[in-house]
């Protein structure tokens, strides 16, 4: 199974709106789930007004909360 590609924007606008919480949510996953994720940081995903932004398998998602992110990851893993 291919890894889930997640890019978290760490730009100032997204940082201000909680990007760090998203990163910590992923860091707190159990190792077997974390091993299925290819996690990268981004400097800007060009959607600054509606952060925090992430790209999950290339799809941009805005205004994401840690709970939503974990749900997305679990859905992808279960599929």
């Amino acid at each position: 199974m291919a890894l889930i590609a997640i890019e978290i924007c760490m730009g100032s606008a997204c940082y201000l709106l909680g990007a760090q919480d998203l990163l910590e949510a992923i860091e707190s996953l159990p190792p077997e789930k974390k091993a299925k994720i290819d996690l990268r940081g981004a400097t800007c995903l060009k959607a600054c007004g509606s952060g925090p932004n992430i790209k999950i398998d290339g799809v941009l998602m805005s205004n994401i909360t840690p709970e939503q992110l974990l749900n997305l990851i679990n859905e992808k893993i279960d599929r």
Binding site: G11, S12, A13, T43, C44
Partner: peptide
């Protein structure tokens, strides 16, 4: 610091860049 970050974002400045 919080207010400063809002000022910088309002100016369109991205510190990571």
């Amino acid at each position: 610091f919080e207010e400063l970050a809002c000022v910088l974002v309002g100016a369109g400045i991205n510190i990571t860049a």
